[in-house]
Amino acid sequence: MERAIRFYKNAKHEWYADIPEWGGDIADLQMVEGADELLNWIAVAGDECKLLMADAPIEDAEILDLVYAREENLGGGGDYMLEKFRGEFKNHKLWLCHVTEFVFKQLPERIYFREIK
């Protein structure tokens, strides 16, 4: 499955995913615990970016590997590792909450992504 998702910073410089069909609390769409740092790398000095995300390989993609699926009482979702970003070794850990399962209908073992200009 492939999905284009826009991410944006609010007035407090906090990152959020723009998922119009999400029926839950907007706080669930906030990008925290390393995901915000990754979005800062992608957007550079900007306050928004759009990513093509997929649970199967896509051309010119960066790769997030699932290292731990969190139980619901720990926030759900999963901890992912980004080994490399734009060819540079990062070994960056980030958390993607249960909204990831809403988007992909599962918690993917691997998430492929690339920026859409």
Results as ranks from 00 to 15, higher is better:
Met31Cys: 15
Glu71Ser: 13
Leu52Cys: 09
Glu115Met: 08
Ala11Asn: 09
Asp36Glu: 13
Gly77Tyr: 09
Gly76Ile: 00
Glu37Asp: 11
Ala54Val: 05
Gly78Cys: 06
Gly24Phe: 02
Ile116Tyr: 04
Met81Phe: 07
Phe89Ile: 13
Ile19Trp: 01
Glu115Trp: 04
Lys9Met: 09
Ile63Gln: 14
Ile116Met: 11
Glu101Gln: 14
Lys93Glu: 10
Leu66Ser: 09
Glu101Gly: 02
Asp25Val: 05
Lys117Met: 05
Glu2Trp: 00
Leu107His: 03
Glu21Asp: 13
Leu39Gln: 04
Leu52Glu: 11
Arg3Tyr: 08
Trp22Glu: 05
Arg3Ser: 03
Trp41Val: 08
Lys12Thr: 07
Ile5Phe: 07
Ala17Phe: 00
Gln106Met: 10
Asp60Cys: 00
Lys90Asp: 06
Glu2Pro: 03
Ile26Pro: 02
Arg3Val: 12
Pro57Thr: 06
Gly87Phe: 13
Gly87Thr: 13
Trp95Gly: 12
Phe7Lys: 01
Asn91Pro: 01
Arg86His: 13
Tyr68Cys: 14
Asn73Met: 13
Pro108Glu: 10
Asn73Val: 11
Tyr16Gly: 04
Glu115Val: 07
Leu64Ile: 06
Arg110Cys: 08
Lys84Asn: 14
Gly76Trp: 00
Ile19Ala: 00
Lys117Arg: 14
Leu82Tyr: 14
Cys49Phe: 08
Val44Ser: 09
Ile111Ala: 01
Asp79Lys: 10
Glu33Val: 09
Arg86Leu: 13
Lys93Asp: 06
Glu2Leu: 05
Gln106Glu: 10
Glu71Thr: 12
Leu96Asp: 05
Tyr68Gly: 04
Ala35Ser: 15
Glu88Gly: 02
Asp36Gln: 07
Trp41Met: 15
Asp47Ser: 10
Tyr16Asn: 03
Leu82Ser: 11
Tyr68His: 15
Leu51Arg: 02
Glu14Phe: 05
Arg114Pro: 02
Trp41Leu: 14
Ile5Ala: 06
Ile19Met: 01
Leu51Pro: 02
Ile26Trp: 05
His92Pro: 06
Glu62Asn: 12
Tyr80Met: 12
Gly24Thr: 02
Pro57Ala: 11
Ile116Pro: 01
Ala11His: 13
Asn40Glu: 13
Phe113Tyr: 10
Asn73His: 15
Leu94His: 04
His92Gly: 07
Tyr8Leu: 08
Leu94Gln: 05
Asn10Ile: 03
Phe104Trp: 04
Val32Lys: 15
Leu64Tyr: 02
Glu71Leu: 12
Asn91Met: 14
Glu62Asp: 12
Gly87Ser: 14
Cys97Val: 03
Gln106Ala: 09
Gly77Arg: 09
Ile111Arg: 04
Ala27Gln: 12
Arg86Gln: 15
Lys50Asp: 06
